[in-house]
Design a protein around this nucleic acid. Sequence first.
DNA 1: GTCTATAACTGGATAGAC
DNA 2: GTCTATCCAGTTATAGAC
Lengths: 231, 231
Amino acid sequence: MRARILDAAEAQFAKHGFDGVAMRDVAGRARVDAALLHYYFGTKKGLFDAVFARRAAVLNRVRIDALDEYARRAGHNVTVEGALKAFTDPLLELAALGDKGWKNYFALLAQVNNTPAWGGRTMTRYFDPVIQRLVEVVRVALPDADPQDLYWSYHFLSGALTLVLSQTGRLERLSRGLCRSGDIEAVYARLTPFMTAGFLAVCQPAGARKVRAGGAVRRRSDGRMLQAGRG
Amino acid sequence: MRARILDAAEAQFAKHGFDGVAMRDVAGRARVDAALLHYYFGTKKGLFDAVFARRAAVLNRVRIDALDEYARRAGHNVTVEGALKAFTDPLLELAALGDKGWKNYFALLAQVNNTPAWGGRTMTRYFDPVIQRLVEVVRVALPDADPQDLYWSYHFLSGALTLVLSQTGRLERLSRGLCRSGDIEAVYARLTPFMTAGFLAVCQPAGARKVRAGGAVRRRSDGRMLQAGRG
DNA sequence: GTCTATAACTGGATAGAC
DNA sequence: GTCTATCCAGTTATAGAC
């Protein structure tokens, strides 16, 4: 019963946000009486928090496990790519299950992650430990990286990942049907390579960085970029 | 008067989203009578659309101009980095002005971009032309790139860019004050290098791609990734 | 634990005076 | 163009029967 309410609330909050959802709607979709929601969860905010916390716990466990497992197996041979895969793959696997609940939850995360009023606080409260663990593991691969570069790089990854899972239909429209945003296989094939290259470009100290052909970048001492070659 | 209402509405919608804002609040902050909002904009949705459209027009003009200008000057020597800079720099410059209005607007964009119910449609309606132009210009640098790879890469960029501008305070908290999300100089220094590397890693056809040391990736025919070396 | 009824309030929107 | 007054639909939340 509790679960049915949480499922319905999750779907509605994911689609319309906290303020766009009426307790009545949730009760109707869950096919329970409206007063029950208050009996179980007290307030609307209580219901929302319960929705948010339920899968956060699961998500954090599988990701922390994946990161620990990867760090243990890789030892000193940790790579940026391996660390990022350990962080994102468990999430993509859940998204690929076809489970409506997880898809809704990820769409909810995308909204919260971009909600100025309280989104930052909420994401911090629930997800900081796993992200700090990710940064730790990446640091094994890039021991000389500037922490600021690592955090900014993660921030870029976070934005991309949440938008990918946000189910807005944006990509379909933009690509005129060429890409489907629910196509997790397509994300698997591209997200980690993209992000790995990004992390390396930003976080690898200048001395250790290989200069690549075409569009090589070099960091100046003040942190601004200079474009090498023809601009 | 219209402008004062739009400014107040922009700030409120940016912070709390469409459903989190009351017309009364907007009227109060704009210090005008509540009935005036309906006189000028008809409905709440009419007000929201006016807010959204106002700066979209400005943003589209400066970005299209920057892309055209860059394509003209670079000719056949277009680089991915140059194209991405032409696309993002005008936006970052507006964000760096210190103008509260633009900051609010970008936070609003971040929310809309991640709103499942109608965000995709809205972003498409207002911003598709400039993005198609970006893809066109990037294609001059990567003529053999698969369009799907380009659209996915843009999707990643879009998510990162909107989160960066979303003003949630997330980055501050995560980095324990080491980074400030409003620090546009820091974004300048990192966003383009990160995204350029990502685009090249994903969109450069395998034949033309240099294999990099450490964490090299190869695409299989089915699009899945294989990690080279120790995983 | 569950449902009925309703309190208490806030929301968008409008009619009509000036 | 602007403001007063108000309508009324929809909201969260609770009291109390069963």
